[in-house]
């Protein structure tokens, strides 16, 4: 009886209020132990969408992804940057341990091309992560991208300026990113099968060398 109950409780569709949802796919480790602990699957969701809502540019919103990107490129999977707003600076990426030979920069002229390129890269199965800066993603496109991410087992992260952020989205994970004194303040707005999470400061000391596997000490609760 107990075994059956345990089995039932392990079903991904069942969520108990006191713990994180169980996902079928393990996530892509973020490189921050404290953040992994708050995310279902223990990392950036694979085969699902993540929306990063950024209060402004230059607050470490990409630096916080670099450990995960370095991990993906070391696994010989590719990383696509779709419609980046500026030049992704090769020395910064290489300095963080990302293998540049696994990087694909895709410039797209308009929203339709951006969404198409996102879908193609996600669906291809070659890209471990797709980072995108679309100007707008309507609900229908989000559903298509979700299916593409599932098909390609890829991590899709897109960036939305805070002033444009909608109240709801299809993303499995929505994170608000804010500036902090020496790091980046992340606030999980939505996660699959999880209630509200405490805000965290990720300390990716700019001056320090890249940390492939950061020590647990790099995280502390927000003041």
């Amino acid at each position: 009886m107990n075994a059956q109950l345990d089995n039932l409780l392990r079903h991904p569709g069942v969520w108990r209020g006191d713990r994180l949802g169980i996902t079928e796919r393990p996530g892509q480790p973020t490189g921050y132990v404290g953040l992994d602990a708050l995310l279902p699957g223990g990392g950036w969701p694979r085969g699902a969408l993540t929306e990063l809502i950024c209060q402004e540019e230059g607050i470490g919103e990409l630096s916080m992804l670099l450990p995960a990107l370095a991990g993906i490129s070391r696994e010989d999977r590719w990383i696509a940057l779709v419609a980046p707003p500026y030049i992704p600076y090769a020395p910064a990426l290489a300095g963080a341990g990302v293998d540049l030979a696994r990087l694909l920069v895709v410039r797209a002229g308009n929203t339709a091309d951006t969404l198409w390129a996102m879908e193609e890269t996600l669906r291809s199965g070659a890209c471990g992560a797709v980072l995108a800066w679309p100007s707008l993603i309507d609900e229908r496109s989000q559903r298509r991208l979700q299916l593409a991410a599932e098909a390609g087992d890829s991590t899709c992260i897109w960036f939305t300026p805070a002033r444009q952020a909608a109240n709801a989205s299809f993303a499995a994970l929505r994170i608000k990113v804010m500036p902090a004194r020496d790091g980046t303040l992340v606030h999980i707005v939505k996660r699959r099968g999880g209630g509200p999470a405490p805000a965290l400061v990720l300390d990716h000391a700019l001056a320090g060398p890249p940390l492939p596997r950061p020590a647990p000490a790099d995280i502390r609760p927000a003041a």
Binding site: E57, G58, L62, S63, L66, P84, P85, Y86, I87, P88, Y89, P91, A92, L93, A94, G95, L206, A207
Partner: peptide, 10 residues
């Protein structure tokens, strides 16, 4: 390289 920013302006 010493620490470099993720974005470079064109």
């Amino acid at each position: 390289f010493p620490p470099r920013p993720f974005w470079l302006l064109p």
